[in-house]
Design a protein around this nucleic acid. Structure first.
Lengths: 106, 106
DNA sequence: CACTCACTTGCCAAATTGGAAAGTAAGTGC
DNA sequence: GCACTTACTTTCCAATTTGGCAAGTGAGTG
């Protein structure tokens, strides 16, 4: 008898991180700047959130060189993809009111 | 060029309130205790969140009498239902990665 | 050598949340 | 009539979280 809310992933739930993870879920990997621009967030904020996601094991950070410039490539790990999928599933369950027992109808 | 994250409703996004609103969205109205039990939250916490939802204009609180005992009936307002629906829509848009432009593929 | 790029980190200050416990308003039992 | 229970409500408080701003770092450019 657990409410699906218990299956929401706190790391993923925050709007900014949800957006970051969702953006990464749609591709294999993306550059820092690309994510920053699509999610519309500052460098500082993204950097911090990426650290959080990395510590959670959801994102892998890869320093690469494009042309001659340094770039940071971000990608979801396998666990990150799984966690995102489960989070979205829980969200859907809650949203569709699947755990309701017997309302009153007052 | 707004990220759908901007359309997430902060009042509704918090896990507890999302669960409360979702529970109410599935019915016409429900008693305080029913919501408290399905969402698995303390009286105190629910009371506080209901106040927040009421101030936002999303929930209507109705004191009723069942038998001889006082009960509190909760129901989403029209705006509450609309806001919930739009929030869920935004969530879906983000989750499906609809706003991606051109990832790098690094 | 000064300057730009691409982030990263430190330092806050504001806002949110929940638990514990006291408070309130009615109704119930003896 | 008085003590007790029900059904919430409110207060106090302490832990987190988050973002902005600004300084910092390391590599590349003219």
């Amino acid at each position: 008898m657990n409410h699906p809310r218990d299956r929401l992933d706190e790391v993923i739930h925050a709007p900014v991180r949800f957006s970051i993870v969702a953006a990464l879920a749609a591709v294999e990997s993306a550059e820092f700047r690309f994510v920053r621009d699509t999610v519309e967030i500052t460098d500082s904020a993204l950097s911090k959130q990426v650290t959080v996601l990395e510590k959670a094991g959801y994102v892998r950070v890869h320093k690469i060189t494009v042309g001659r410039r340094a770039r940071t490539s971000l990608a979801l790990t396998k666990e990150g993809r799984t966690a995102f999928a489960e989070h979205v599933r829980a969200l859907g369950e809650i949203a569709s009111g699947e755990t309701l027992r017997t309302p009153d109808g007052a």
